[in-house]
Each structure stands twice: as structure tokens, then as C-alpha cells.
Design a binder for these strands. Sequence first.
DNA 1: TTAAATAACTGACCAGAGGTCATTACAAGC
DNA 2: GCTTGTAATGACCTCTGGTCAGTTATTTAA
Lengths: 220, 220
Amino acid sequence: MSTERKRARTQDQKHFRRQQILDAAEQQFTEVGYEGFSMANLAKLAGVVKGTLYLYFKTREEVFLTLYNQSLVRWSHVFLDQLQDAMTDQDYAKTLYTTALADGSFIPLLTRLEHVIEHNVSVESLIQSKRNFIERVDCIAQATAPVLNLSQAQSLELVKTMGVLLVGASNTDQGPSLEGETIPADVQGLIDSFSSEPIFIKNACRIISGIRADHSATGE
Amino acid sequence: MSTERKRARTQDQKHFRRQQILDAAEQQFTEVGYEGFSMANLAKLAGVVKGTLYLYFKTREEVFLTLYNQSLVRWSHVFLDQLQDAMTDQDYAKTLYTTALADGSFIPLLTRLEHVIEHNVSVESLIQSKRNFIERVDCIAQATAPVLNLSQAQSLELVKTMGVLLVGASNTDQGPSLEGETIPADVQGLIDSFSSEPIFIKNACRIISGIRADHSATGE
DNA sequence: TTAAATAACTGACCAGAGGTCATTACAAGC
DNA sequence: GCTTGTAATGACCTCTGGTCAGTTATTTAA
């Protein structure tokens, strides 16, 4: 391959190279998913050799953690853009769910964050990632409070809880594809009854109602 | 090792051998967790050679799926035993949460079920596992209805929803250990605020209230 | 009792994974 | 043009899940 690739000497060039790798990683991730993802293939896609990847990322999981952080920021912007004054609880929940799922990387990475990705990552990267998370959550909570007519504290609790519910609900439809397979009616019925969208929206509404009913403005 | 291991010829002997492997697997799983689990080590623990494992399980994930099914049954018995007439919503939620967490294998396997384990398993095993799940859920729902004073349909929806919430909530405290690490106060505060038990119980209660408020006895 | 048939079991082997590091070669400074 | 720092390389490592031709304990039939 005569890609004529120049060496990255300055900080700017290195950041650019790093982002090139991340773009290739995102591409591979959307194509083959988490389990099918390999560093050898990433190297090929990014037009570098495997060893080079490890100049820019300490481990495979550091790549994923960076992708996650980027997808979180990306999604939060999309979501904040779609918030309007005085939405119904249901509209709010539906918007949150739909925008989150529309981002191809966000949910799959979020569901693997804590029990896989964070376990092979440097403490500095972890702290940086958590700080990014705090910032996004705070920002979303601040925008949510007026929309749903909640106090700041209520809004913060709500946003955090929505994250938990999102992980739980989206888990249920990440099973294998089963296309072309013969599935018995009872099993198919079970799978259908766990369709994540209605589960998320219904329970999000219940939780919003519950939080609104807690009219204690005290901390926690 | 001169374990004098006999060959398993009859079905009974084969079932016994299979369970021996599963017991060793459970032991290894509780010791090293999902990511540290290896088939080579399982073979050593079970006192057989690696190839033999594949006479009893098609893939590594078939081992995990079987462990999951066993842990689900085990937990459901413990939980059902602890149900009493007329518990408060909070007691019910707390019992569910506590018993689930007390089983060392159940939660870690449940959180990896759909996006990892089920993706490398035969369709027959998957169907069998789903059937087992249906049976346990139905059984728990039937026992739950009188306890929380719900209709059968409400109870069924509740139990399914509790599963979703359990996955979401337990995800939040499966991060890396961070013992002996210096964690900044803001990040530590975030981690503390995601402690899974209060999140689960609070929102379980909100959801139970919400379901109880839906006094439509119509299907779905 | 013994020979033949069966299949549980073995362990060397494979491809591919994540990760390392001595070496190479390119760009900047004198 | 030469020296020097370092980005980039690619051969190499260990480990993984998984395979399979061959071995041998056990059952069956003569």
C-alpha cells in the first residue's frame, strides 16, 4: 500500500492521526459490532500497522472508551436540540429513547461500559470519562428541569435514572438476529413482549411521575 | 494427576460428568469472573482435557448459558421462599434485589446474556433457555400477584419489568474495583450516587405504583 | 474367554486475538 | 548535509477458543 502517509510530528498532526484511527474504529464497530471488532482489522482500516495503534491507545478498551465518550457527547447534542418547552412526559421519554437508539454506537457501548470496557483502561482515562459523563448529565438535567417542570434536584435524579432504564431496556433487544430461524410461538411471544421501546417509554413515564410526586426539595 | 477417572458410558454417567464440568465452571466463574474465565482452566479444574469439554458443550457460551439457567432457577426458588403474604412494595423490591445479588452468578450472567452469551449458542439451546425463562417468570408472577395485590396481567408485567430494571441498576456497580486508587471527589461522588440498591428499590416502587394505577384489566 | 465393535477421551494442533519491542526511516535543528 | 529524536514498523510473543485423527476403556457377540 503506497498511501504516502506522512509522519505525525506536531501535536496537531498527532491529534489528527488519532482521530483518523477513531473514525476507522467507529466504522468497523458499526459494521461488525463489539465482538467482531479486532485491532488487526482496525489497523488495516486506518491504513497503519497494528503496533502504531498502541502509540495512540494503551489498549483496545481505551479505543472503545474514547468512542463511547464521543458518542455520548454527540447524542447529548442531538437530544438537547430536540427538547422543546413543555413537552409531555411521554414525548420527553420517546425523544430520549429515539435519539439514543438512532446513534449507532452509543447504546452498544453504553451497555458494555461498566462490566467490560472500564476494566481494561487506565485510571486517568476512567476519571476523564467520568468527568465527561458528569458534565453531560448536568447539562441535560439543567435543560430537562424546565421542560418537565421539575426542580434541579429532581431533574438530576431523573436523568441519572433514565440512564439506568435505558441500559436495562436496550439490553432486551440486543439478542441474536434469528432471521430465517424457526422460532416456536411461545418463545417468539416472549421476545416480542420484551420490545424495548414500549418498556422504556412506559416505565420512564412511571418514574417521572414518581419523581414529581416526591415533592421534598431536600438534597439527595 | 492419577484421578482414575472412569469413562461415562450411560446417560446417567454422562449427565453426572456434565454437571461436574458445570460445577467446576461455576467455581472458576466466581473466582475469576466472566472475562478471566478460560476453557483451558476449566478443563484443569474439572480434571479433564480441553477437548473433552467440547463433547459436553458446543461452545464456551453454551457453558455460560447453562450456568445462567441454573442460577435463574436457583435464585427463583430462594426468592419465592422469601415471599410472604401482604408485603409492602418496598419489602418486595428489597427482597428481590437482595436475593438476586446474593447469588454470585446470577447477575453477572444476566447482564451478559443478550449481547454476549446468546450470540454464540445453538438455536435449540437458546429456545430451551427462553422456555426456562418463561416458566420461571410465570411462576414468580403467579406468586407475586397476591403479595402485591395485583391482577395476573399486572403481576406478569411487573416481573418482566423488574428484570429490566435489575439489569440496568446492577450494571452501575460492576465497574472496576479502584481500591487503593486516588479518585477525585467529584468522580467519587458520581460513583456513590449510582449505588445500585437504592436506585433499584426506589424505582421498583415507582413502577409498582404505576402498574397498580393502570387499572385497565385488558390484555397486554 | 476372547475378539470385535463402539465411542469417550486425549492432546497435538490451528487460526486469530491482544499486545510488545528492537529496529527502521523520516522530519526537524544545527 | 549531518545528527538526532521519535513516529512508524512488522516480526514476534503468549494466550485464546476450537478441532480432530488417533487412542483406549468398555460393552457386546461369538
